[in-house]
């Protein structure tokens, strides 16, 4: 399978991607915040052994990577591809990651918890993502023994994750809800059943390209199935709302805006990140509304590979101005 952002251009419409994350800890080591260097070494060695044993049975092959061997540019690019969390990237030296070839499955080692299992797919695929995360969790637990309490469930460093340790999220493209000021209403509806709405790169970030992430917050007292089904119900409601808002648009005005965006992307010589995000969002809307043909542009893939870290990695350019130039050139070549 292709990585999520390539898949998203094929299968994703308003729902761009689905992600599931499980927080787990070994029962016989303190949580990462209270671990010393030797404990980090021990943790990584034990997880690596477990990952290797699972790979040997042929079920799931993950590549083990020590983060201090990864160049800085690539670390930023990994955050932009949603492979690792911003928090994992900030303090990566002691940490490691085990990851599948297509990057859809990853195990972050030594983040806030000993282990963070992540599965990410393009489009609406929460059930499939959870199924795989669940299986990998079971296999790892057999080898590592996770901290678990009959009353409190899986024990985590931050009490906000205790219980299932599950954070499920979907990323939605909501340009028309955004421009018609409906995000607050969407956010309220989600809040009522314990879900939160955030900008594209998760906690504390501003939404760019009208991408929003909706995720569950409550992990204790709710089963994985119910948490995921709540998320699916709300996601569908938001999709309906976005569709209704799209239906009321003036088609001529929309066509004009979409083709202007197309023209700028096709001919611009300098594209800063903010302008690019707005334009590519318009292209994505244009494709979903049937104004631009689906295969001519892959907006989500472009969005990801034109992020600063990804550009820096591919072109080894440094200054913001050089990046804007490289971004414009890359976009021109891909349209």
């Amino acid at each position: 399978m292709a990585c999520w952002y390539k898949e998203a251009d094929k299968v994703g419409d308003i729902i761009i991607s689905s992600r599931v994350r499980l927080a787990r800890n070994l029962s016989d080591l303190p949580f990462p915040r209270r671990m010393n260097d030797d404990m980090f070494i021990q943790l990584k060695a034990r997880v690596k052994k477990a990952i290797d044993e699972i790979a040997a049975t042929g079920d799931l092959k993950l590549k083990f990577i020590e983060m201090n061997a990864v160049p800085e540019n690539e670390i930023n690019a990994m955050v932009e591809r949603h492979v690792i969390s911003p928090d994992f990237a900030r303090n990566y030296h002691d940490r490691a990651i085990a990851i599948s070839d297509d990057e859809s499955v990853s195990v972050m080692i030594g983040e806030e918890d000993h282990i963070r299992i992540q599965v990410i797919y393009g489009g609406m695929a929460l059930d499939k993502a959870y199924e795989l995360a669940d299986c990998l969790d079971t296999a790892l637990n057999e080898k590592l023994g996770f901290a678990y309490d009959n009353q409190l469930g899986f024990l985590t460093e931050c009490p906000t994750n205790i219980g299932t340790g599950l954070r499920a999220s979907v990323m939605l493209h909501l340009p028309v809800c955004e421009s018609s000021g409906q995000i607050a209403a969407v956010s309220d509806a989600a809040g009522k059943i314990g879900l939160t709405v955030r900008g594209m790169y998760g906690e504390g970030s501003k939404a760019g390209a009208s991408l929003y992430q909706i995720s569950n917050q409550i992990t204790l007292g709710i089963s994985e199935e119910n948490a995921i089904s709540n998320l699916k119900v709300i996601a569908e409601q938001i999709v309906d709302r976005e569709k209704a808002a799209r239906a009321s648009l003036d088609i001529k005005e929309l066509e004009d805006a979409v083709f202007r965006a197309y023209g700028t992307l096709k001919y611009a010589r300098l594209l800063n990140s903010e302008e690019f995000m707005k334009l590519i969002s318009m292209i994505k809307l244009g494709i979903n509304m049937g104004i631009i043909e689906k295969d001519t542009i892959r907006p989500i893939e472009l969005l990801i590979i034109a992020q600063p870290g990804m550009l820096q990695k591919s072109f080894s350019v440094m200054s913001p101005r050089e990046r804007d130039e490289a971004r414009a050139e890359m976009v021109r070549n891909m349209i």
């Binding site: 669940d134 996770f146 299932t164 007292g221 089963s223 994985e224």
Partner: peptide
């Protein structure tokens, strides 16, 4: 969380 009793997965309930 609203509740203090885990109702989710119990370790070791599914195979890979």
């Amino acid at each position: 969380h609203g509740g203090v009793r885990h109702t989710g997965k119990v370790p070791g309930t599914k195979q890979l």
